[in-house]
Simulated scan of single mutants.
Amino acid sequence: MRTFDLAPLYRSTVGFDRLFSMLDQVSGYDGAGSSYPPYNIERTGENAYRITVAVAGFGESELSIEAKASTLTIKGEKQLKADEKNGELLYQGIAARAFERVFQLADHVEVKGAALENGLLHVDLVREVPEAMKPRQIPIGGGRPQVIDAKAA
């Protein structure tokens, strides 16, 4: 039997959480992978989400966030300065490599803002469904249904 690993899709999409949770339950998949930089996706409200990316060592000027169509791209590129080097580096455990992380956003999910705090980049998202697409109650009237004449309208 062939199994499918949905973890990459689950990690990089926002707003599809119910769909991927159902697929994970059906497939019985419970694993999770990690990649650079690590991040969390959390639901902060019924229609609000937050992506938190660990970007220790990066300044605001070295990070860029771009929302285009249904994708959110977070890029980081460390700008090394020759005058900052004070001595010989014996061990480097703090990664300073460039990265690009792309998240697929569900329909009507928009970026509301971003903040860099204590080495964590927080990107706040909200799902705003237009009124025309929200479910509505249809009243049931007594008697026969009314037929509207297209010519009279």
Rank of each mutant, 00 (worst) to 15 (best):
S27I: 15
Q92H: 12
L23E: 09
L63F: 02
E84C: 08
A56P: 00
F20E: 07
G57V: 02
G33R: 15
E88R: 05
Y29D: 03
S70K: 06
F58V: 00
F103D: 02
R18M: 13
L120Y: 04
V53I: 04
Y91W: 14
V55E: 07
L23V: 08
E62Y: 10
A114S: 11
D107Y: 15
R18V: 12
I51V: 12
E110M: 04
A67N: 06
K75L: 03
Q79Y: 07
L116F: 01
E46N: 10
G31L: 10
S35C: 00
Y36S: 04
E117I: 11
F58C: 04
V55G: 07
P38Q: 12
F58M: 07
Y29T: 14
E117Q: 10
T44R: 02
N118R: 03
Q25T: 13
R11P: 06
Y39P: 02
K81R: 13
V109G: 04
A67P: 00
G113T: 01
G28C: 11
G28L: 01
A96R: 12
S34K: 10
M22N: 08
Y91L: 14
D83M: 06
K75D: 09
T13Q: 09
I51L: 08
L72F: 10
S61W: 01
K112C: 06
R43A: 00
G45E: 11
E84T: 11
D24S: 08
I94P: 09
V26K: 07
R50T: 13
I94S: 15
G45C: 00
H108G: 08
A67K: 04
T44K: 04
T13K: 03
Y36F: 15
A32C: 14
I65K: 04
S12T: 11
